[in-house]
Nucleic acid binder design. Structure first.
Length: 498
RNA sequence: GCCCCCAUCGUCUAGGGGACCAGGACGUAGCCCUUUCAAGGCUAAGACCGGGGUUCGAAUCCCCGUGGGGGCACCA
């Protein structure tokens, strides 16, 4: 059954980097919008002038694009509900707050931060929950209005009912009931004239006709307030969906950079752009993220963006917190890398060579890529595993050159024989070369693995490499001969000194 | 301290009263394949937090406890 077109929004605050938790929220929003033929709104919630970071918005845009999440309305593309930047919507909030005061749902408060701090202190000393004591709530509306008009510094608070209970419906959790007496008279408008999240987000969501609100479950504690605001203004509530939080890989605490468990970088990678820079594919990251807190069925785990759009459903969202699992990300990334065409993989790998200062050629890369495709889990590993292709010489550890169960002189001899064979062999192609080397091993009474092992280290300088014969053919006879000759010298020296 | 949320293998999860001696995936271990490493194939170990109810019957519903998480700002 197709759902009605959903209007959803991704509304980050430009106060920091783009976190994978935000990415997942944005993804779900995007999926629902696309699935239902609705719109995704990108809104900037920049009402905190103290924590504002100018570069943040740029990172959001870059990260969102990397993920492949596109929005229909936003500060850059405009739209019928513009502006999409809260700092530009001051008049709207002021009009709304005025109406709230008129309705008796909000009031001006002239208490100073100092008084509030003291109040909190004494309440805590008495082991009472810290809450506003309602001093200004008891002011006559007319006198409050006068003081406001005279320019007295003030905030505006929500007049929370002091009895009864508030019920809000979270789609994942059902009805959430809270006693009103446990709530506070939250500040809606700060003394600088800018709204808090509570006011701005509610006003915007309503005015922008948002139908579904996906947000982090950190908002659950103030959820009743938001319901109360909607009720006071007699607005129709959206469907509220509080997404579970991401926990550290250890399962202890909210995901933070500190927790390095299971991560290969020494600290948890929690920013989208860092994931990108480490060589993760956006399609793998999306797939991985989508599955933390959402599932489709028992046996399907691989989803393209198109499939996610088709299969996503709010009902299958899971309200419990999820510990991130980086090894599963690695797995997904490997799967997606293997699923790429050689050309596509080559295109994605190229920047990582450039970043490592390695100059590549398209034709060489074209030969190398299929060899490493099933051996790498992240794009940057391509560089590590194949850099020997691009170096003039390689520097193997002489000890590594000794063949399995062989002496240095036996190893040197085998290398010399191979060198001779490859020097004189007419064709330097995969099948004949492999056959010839196997014959040689046979003659020398070596296992192929022993001979190949020596050559592998000699030619690549690494214990682990792409398949040997293919590698040598790509490298070319001249380079191979040179490197084997070098290895022979190293082995002979080893022989002499031991 | 107060309020709220959550609770199935180490992790992500399937499960929404009988189909469950609980299924899948990652990870782990073993075997096979193999010139290294991977990839691939096969196999194994591994969970319903505890206690009360309700019911003929509970992983599934209710209550309590415990554990975990989140929040308690003129931040979002």
């Amino acid at each position: 059954m197709p759902l009605a077109p959903a209007r959803v929004r991704f509304a980050p605050s430009p106060t920091g980097r783009f976190h994978i938790g935000s990415a997942r929220t944005a993804l779900y929003n995007y999926l629902l919008a696309r699935q239902t033929g609705g719109q995704l709104i990108f809104r900037i919630e920049d009402t905190d002038q103290k924590r504002y970071i100018p570069e943040a918005e740029q990172e959001f845009v870059e990260a969102l694009k990397w993920h492949g999440i596109k929005w229909d309305e936003g500060p850059d593309v405009g739209g019928p509900y513009a502006p999409y930047r809260q700092s530009l919507r001051g008049d709207i909030y002021h009009a709304q707050i005025e109406e709230m005061i008129d309705r008796g749902a909000a009031y001006a408060c002239f208490c100073t931060p100092e008084r509030l701090a003291e109040l909190r202190k004494s309440q805590q000393a008495r082991k009472e929950p810290p809450r506003y004591d309602g001093l200004c709530r008891r002011l006559e509306p007319s006198t409050a209005e006068e003081r406001v008009r005279s320019g007295e510094k003030h905030v505006v608070r929500f007049k929370t009912p002091q009895q009864g209970e508030t019920r809000g419906v979270d789609v994942l959790r059902g009805e959430i009931v809270v006693q009103n007496e446990t709530l506070d008279d939250y500040i809606l408008m700060k003394s600088d004239g800018l709204p808090t999240y509570h006011l701005a987000a509610m006003v915007d969501d309503h005015l922008m006709d948002v139908t579904h609100v996906f947000r982090a479950s950190e908002w659950l504690p103030t959820f009743p307030l938001h319901v109360l605001i909607y009720e006071a203004m007699e607005w129709q509530q959206p469907a509220w969906v509080h997404l579970s939080v991401f926990l550290n890989p250890s399962g202890k605490g909210k995901l933070s950079k500190r927790d390095a468990e299971g991560s290969k970088s020494g600290s948890a990678v929690i920013f989208s752009l860092d994931l990108r820079n480490m060589g993760y594919l956006p399609e793998a990251v999306n797939n991985w993220m989508a599955l933390m807190g959402w599932s489709y069925d028992d046996h399907t785990e691989l989803f393209s963006m198109e499939e996610l759009i088709e299969k996503f459903s709010i009902e299958k969202l899971n309200p419990s917190p999820a510990a991130v699992n980086y090894s599963k990300l690695d797995h997904f990334n490997g799967v997606y890398i293997r699923g790429l065409s050689v050309n596509e993989l080559q295109k994605r790998i190229e920047p990582f060579y450039a970043q490592a200062g390695i100059e590549t050629s398209a034709s060489l890369l074209n030969q190398i890529t299929p060899l490493i495709q099933e051996r790498i889990r992240t794009l940057d590993e391509a560089v590590q595993i194949s850099s020997f292709f691009f170096q003039d010489e390689v520097h193997p550890d002489p000890q590594d050159l000794i063949g399995k169960n062989l002496s240095p002189s036996e190893s040197a001899n085998a290398a010399r024989e191979a060198q001779m064979l490859m020097d004189t062999k007419s064709s330097f192609e995969i099948e004949p070369l492999e056959a010839a080397l196997r014959d040689l091993a046979d003659q020398l009474e070596l296992k192929p693995g022993q001979l190949f092992g020596i050559l592998r280290i000699a030619v690549t300088g690494q214990r682990v490499s792409p398949p040997l014969i293919e590698t040598m053919v790509i490298l070319g006879r001249e380079t191979v001969l040179k490197r084997v000759a070098e290895a022979v010298k190293l082995l002979e020296r080893l022989n002499d000194s031991s």
